[in-house]
Each structure stands twice: as C-alpha cells, then as structure tokens.
Design a protein around this nucleic acid. Structure first.
Lengths: 136, 136
DNA sequence: TCATTTGTAACTATAATGGTTACAAATGAG
DNA sequence: CTCATTTGTAACCATTATAGTTACAAATGA
C-alpha cells in the first residue's frame, strides 16, 4: 500500500484551494486532516519543492502557485513519492540460474507498464476534479 | 512501494514453468530467488490458495495448475496482496470541516480509477509474457 | 520405516511511517 | 524596533510491515 502522504497532500491542496480567501496555516490544515501540524508542514515542504504551493517562515499559511485545473494528481503523486518505483523487485536473484539472471529485466518491463498505466490515469485527473467531488 | 512478494511470486511461477520437467522444490526456488526456502513456501501457500499452483507436504516441489498463457499478472497480484487497496487514505479527517467530511469519498473515486488502470494493465500481461522476456 | 519435503508458528532485525517535542529563523503588526 | 506568530527541520518515539530464520509437526512415497 502506498502511504497516506499522497492522500493527505491532496487534502492539503483541496483545503488551500477552498479556503482561498482565508489563511490556510499548517495548524488549520492539521485540524481538517486531523493530525499534527508538523506532518502538514513536512508534506507542505514537498509540495513547495514541486512548485505547487508557496509559503514560508514568518508568512502565515500556504497558497497555490497554479490553478486547481492545472495541477494533476500525477503532479501531486510525483511531489510526495520522489522517484521511487511503484513495485519493489527483489534485489539479488541468482545470476547462475537462467531465470534468476534475467528476471529483473523481465519484471521491470512488465511492472513499469503497469506503473505507467496508473500514472497516466492520475495525469488525467486534476485537483479541480477532486474539489468538484467534495460536495457529494 | 509495493513489497517484493509480487515480484518473487512471478519469479517462483516462472521457475516452476521453466523447470516443468524437473522438480521445483522450495529449496531449489529459494536458490534462484536467493532467499530462505520458508519465504518461498510462504508465498507458495498464497499461490496455492489462489489455485495457481499445487503441491503439499510429502510431495516434493510445486507445479502449475494452469498454463502460463492463462495466468495473468493480475491473478498473481491478487493472490499475494489479498484485498488491500493500492492507495492508503488517511483515516480520520475532521467531519466538521467541509473538505474533511467528504475528502475520503472524493479520494476513493479518483484513486480507485488509478488502481483499476494499473490492474487492467496487469490483466493484459501473462506469465507467458514474462517467460518470453527471460532470454533477453 | 524413514528420508524428504511442505506448512506454519514463532522469533528477530531492519526499515518505513506517522506523531510529537523542540527550537531556530523569518515575517509583519504594533 | 520589538514581539507574537508561523514555518522549517532536526530529533526522537511507537507502531507496523517486511523479510529472514529456526524449529518442528504432518504428509508422502521409496
């Protein structure tokens, strides 16, 4: 299972967008996510590195850098997962075995396809789509 | 990251298929995967529950129940991941907040789509495809 | 009968995760 | 300028998942 940083990141961005008039501090966001403000700031730090939000010490709250329609879920996913692969492949299969010596390459081909399929679906959805579902 | 059970399971099945004439014991498979035989038997147990292989105490080795063309990577994925969701969603957002009260539903809609996209890609590939890539 | 092998429980070390405290640094209001 | 507020980040902790390991009962077939 992929950790909750991704879903919390989407939550954070949704809240910032929906509170565009008010000030979305890490404390307020933490109240909505129901966690510790440091957890929010930690993820906020990743979202800043990815140029999705802005904010900093002394300035209360975060704000979006782009419009919700311009932020895809893939942007958010990449921001919080770094360059990690979706599927782990076991490290040291036996190179003296016909299967062992080439299984990693074979796995990489197939599993990368699956990862790309997922990422393409995330790229089709934006923060705006999430926000539109919020009134459900 | 999804754990290595999935990739090890594919390795196990590939080895059983490619050694169809010889006896694929947990010890031999462990030698190819380069791990402990119990790890193999543990995953083997899951593959048996999913009706992908057969074998048991007293009988040396495992054998495939279906042909490699009939085993999709999704079958294997489901066998080793149980019914767990791909993406974790944070548990207790604040129900007194407009975003918090409906974010889980919104996330579920979007993330389930991404998971399905990945699963559909896995369903398109079979154990036979992996085996064909092995000679690379 | 007995050597071989699987199934599984139990334990361990390691790593990831999320929560928490603490505090320096930056900012802007007064 | 001063100070309250807020962010950034290090450090630490508890919990959990993971993979490896030992041990042994149960099943099988030679």
């Amino acid at each position: 299972m992929i950790n909750t940083r991704f879903s919390v990141a989407i939550h954070i961005l949704s809240l910032i967008a929906s509170e565009a008039n008010r000030v979305a501090t890490s404390d307020i966001i933490a109240g909505s996510v129901n966690t510790n403000p440091v957890v929010i700031r930690r993820i906020g730090s990743l979202l800043k590195k990815a140029q999705l939000i802005q904010g900093g010490p002394g300035v209360a709250g975060y704000s979006l850098v782009k419009q919700p329609e311009e932020i895809t879920l893939l942007d958010i996913y990449k921001a919080v997962t770094d360059e990690k692969e979706l599927f782990a492949i076991h490290e040291k299969p036996n190179p003296n075995c016909d299967v062992g010596k080439s299984i990693q390459t074979a796995l990489d081909i197939s599993l990368t396809r699956a990862q790309l399929a997922m990422e393409q679906e995330l790229a089709k959805q934006t923060l705006q789509d999430i926000i539109e579902h919020l009134t459900d």
